[in-house]
């Protein structure tokens, strides 16, 4: 049985990364923007694990674990920030969060 070539994984991860970046740039709901950022991180994880298995070098998989841990910590802080702002403004629409001009 032949394994799937590495290029397929890389193309998929590049596609996921682009979807994530596009999502951050065009969506206006803070939660959706945050989900897009998570998609970017996971696309990097996919590339890391694919490289790691292709090269037979486990460093990439270890790094992917650390990325997941850090993403969990970031999610905890990020969702707390979003809840704090929702309590004060009753909205998480980025266009309405505009005391300061961007």
């Amino acid at each position: 049985m032949t394994s799937i070539p590495i290029e397929y994984y890389l193309i998929l991860s590049a596609f996921m990364f682009s979807v994530g970046v596009t999502g951050v740039l065009i969506r206006r709901n803070a939660i959706v923007v945050f989900m897009s950022i998570e998609l970017m991180l996971n696309s990097a994880n996919l590339a890391l694990v694919a490289f790691s298995s292709y090269l037979g070098n486990s460093t990439g998989q270890i790094f992917a674990f650390f990325v997941m841990t850090v993403a969990a910590a970031e999610a905890a802080v990020g969702l707390a920030i979003i809840i704090a702002i929702f309590r004060n403004k009753l909205t998480v629409n980025l266009d309405e969060i505009n005391i300061f001009k961007w």
Binding site: F34, L41, L48, F63, G78
Partner: peptide
């Protein structure tokens, strides 16, 4: 004000982290 600042910092900071992690993946590969 602090809510808004931390939300902007968080979203853009996490966005930058996404670039760094993807860059690390390509450099590692």
């Amino acid at each position: 004000n602090a809510n808004e600042a931390s939300m902007k910092y968080f979203l853009l900071g996490a966005f930058a982290t996404g670039f760094i992690v993807y860059g690390v993946a390509l450099v590692f590969g």
